[in-house]
Design a binder for these strands. Sequence first.
RNA 1: GCCAAAGUGGUGAAAUGGCAGACGCGCUGGACUCAAAAUCCAGUGGGGGCAACCUCGUGCGGGUUCGAGUCCCGCCUUUGGCACCA
Length: 808
Amino acid sequence: MDMLLIEKKWRERWEKDKLYSFNKARLDKKYYVLEMFSYPSAARLHVGHWYNYGPSDSFAKFKRMQGYEVFEPMGFDAFGLPAENFAIKTGIHPKDSTYKNIITMEEQLKQMNASFDWDYELKTCSPDYYRWTQWIFLQLFKAGLAYRKEAPVNWCNSCNTVLANEQVIDGRCERCSHEIVRRNLTQWFFKITDYAEELLQDLDKLDWPQKTLAMQRNWIGKSIGGEVEFQIENGGSFRVFTTRADTLHGVSYVVLAPEHPLVMQLVTDEKRDTVAKYIDMCSKASEIDRLSSTREKTGEFIGAYAINPINNERIPILIADYALYSYGTGAVMGVPAHDERDFAFATKYNLPITRVIGGKDGKDDLPFTEHGTLVNSGTHNGLLSKAAIETILNSLEAEGKGGKKINYRLRDWLVSRQRYWGCPIPIVHCDCCGEVAIPEDQLPVELPYNVDFTPNGKSPLGKCDEYINTVCPKCGKPAKREEDTLDTFVCSSWYYLRYPDAKNDKMPFDPELINKMLPVDKYIGGAEHACMHLLYARFFTKALRDLGYLKFDEPFTSLVHQGLILGPDGNKMSKSRGNVVSPDSIIQKVGADAFRLYLMFGFSYIEGGPWNETGIDSIVKFIERIERIVTSTYKARGAHKDMNKAEKDLNFVRHNTIKRVTADTEIFSFNTAIARLMELVNALNKYDTVREKNIEFMKSVCLDLVLLIAPFTPCFAEELYEIIGGKGSVLNVSYPIFNPECLIRDEYELAVQINSKNRDKIMVGSTLSNAEIIVIAKAAANIASAIDGKTIVKEIVIPKRLVNIVIK
RNA sequence: GCCAAAGUGGUGAAAUGGCAGACGCGCUGGACUCAAAAUCCAGUGGGGGCAACCUCGUGCGGGUUCGAGUCCCGCCUUUGGCACCA
């Protein structure tokens, strides 16, 4: 078969017949399969694209053949830095290069023989999409979920923009690996922290990889504890957050974060200079320096004192950059005896260390960080930590000096970017009215084309006079537009909602339709999005639900991460390593179906692994074996109609294959599914050598084979189906269903063990009882002699598998 | 440092606590052929034995169990994630 030719033939026919067109009349049977959309890169599709889209499309086709109305859209995550950086280098405008790349990518994606319904295609950089991104921004703004604040932010000097916490990897920019520095800037944030608890709780509802759930839990970082209020000696007060209120008697100092506003108020005149210097030093430190937990702790006494509310002790107030202004209250109590970090800090600065929790077994090593019994704690002596936390926080609460409190590690999502190629923020800054939302009927705020986007640390849109200067929608006076654009993760946080209603020009989506189409039934994409896209999208869904636009809580019911295909050297493929494998030549040689099948058979889908193409030839041979056995069977003639042992054996393999392929495909275990298909082909070939063949029966097995393979090699299966006289598309035929009765064998082979070691094999009828089986087992040649004269301690029968006789 | 996952033939990899290595690749032998290719068939974890068979074997050391790659405890290694979060 000329695969390239037949693939073209079937692609054209599918398109003509609109085979993959989603039928809204069958919404009750909808199955939404979504693969994470791609960035429109200039390079051709790489192995990773194929590995993501090929097997998951097979899953979609499998669901289709099971009778579901499958919705499998495709689009482009088209805003973003690469196009802009490319433009800076070459002068080609990001819009031009992006749209050009999209066209070539569309062509390539179509060569995959996938079921994408292109009628629902979306591009996040197109005004009819980002109009609604802006609309959602405004809904969040009106609900108080989008706000502007000055805060220390992560700044990348190479990308000339701020980054969200999630985009900082080990103190470096996730994109260019440049060191991140901190800057104080006024930026837009989304209040994702309002949803911290629900984002955490609802993880329990999701059919997601355990690892990803764990990562999100860690990222949200719930911490149950309490707040304690410390009076300042010369008036005023502040609070600290602690999970160990039981150690309150052991507090020998408190620490404020360098950015804490109280610091410059409380500092004494003699300390003012050194403290200011320290603060300055902290602000200049890069994230890398600051993040290093092995770095020696530093701090400065600010000359002021606080009062420990539980024992009225006078304790010094220090500043140290290990206290994070953005977590808790920005202030920490120091308990050197029971915290490793505090211990190191107190030792260095000669602060008192008082033990207040007794050690185990009389040991008195410090620091002792476990729970235990309180000592040196006045009236609380003798309490266990857990009870003490409860008691102390309750009494503090009664006195108005604190109480129980939960903190989260999760921070609000910083969405401003000082870049050009992104969604404009639909806000006007007016001297009189402040931040004013652009009226919804004036959306989209279009991204201007003629903009100088050479990077100089200022937002490119700010340099574009005709864009930036406008009038206030409220008071009509001259005003300036917001000059930053939105993080591209904002665009991708709702695209799954837009797909089913991609052409709607009245609203972002019709809630009535979307509530029926969503949530996504199966979402497939890389694990690297665990704490970014997948978290943001969940937040958007919940926020839009609370605003009344959606009726479901979670966007993606079930999630699968495909593994990573590494270079042949076992490293991640990258241009700089020179280990990038291009699939183009392989596809030109063997076709997209064979390539897809190879990817599905050669790797465990969720594991991935180093690239190795030695198996491709064998996959081609396998396809040819199928073609040979199916076509020769359909040409053969014979009047034989019996169903004897040979037929029953083949029928067993057939139904076992159907059962296993169905179950394995359901859980994305494609390599084992294909192994089962190979077994069926082997069984067919074996049966083919039988002298008196039941040709009609054999044909029916071949038909099942063609149907079973159809999701994996769609064009090949279509062609074969046509050759054997099938009408219409094979993908419209129902996927075979196994018959349990055909899986019952007349007799089974059992291993017979003595003391758990194999000693013999027996054939037993399937209707025999365990007692009858034991009788046969004991009579087997090797067994009878072995148990002769011995005491039998135990007899175990595992149906269809083994008999174990335990003797003394 | 903390959390999670993984470690199985020459190789890609399989195994609801039940015959370890399914299905492939590679290799060896055979059939077909003048010959080769293609195709088909058989064999293929280590050690021992002429043989039927025996024995060892899933990173290492223990344990639970009639039975452990799988469960438990303690290590080693690798890979991801988090990392001054009070």
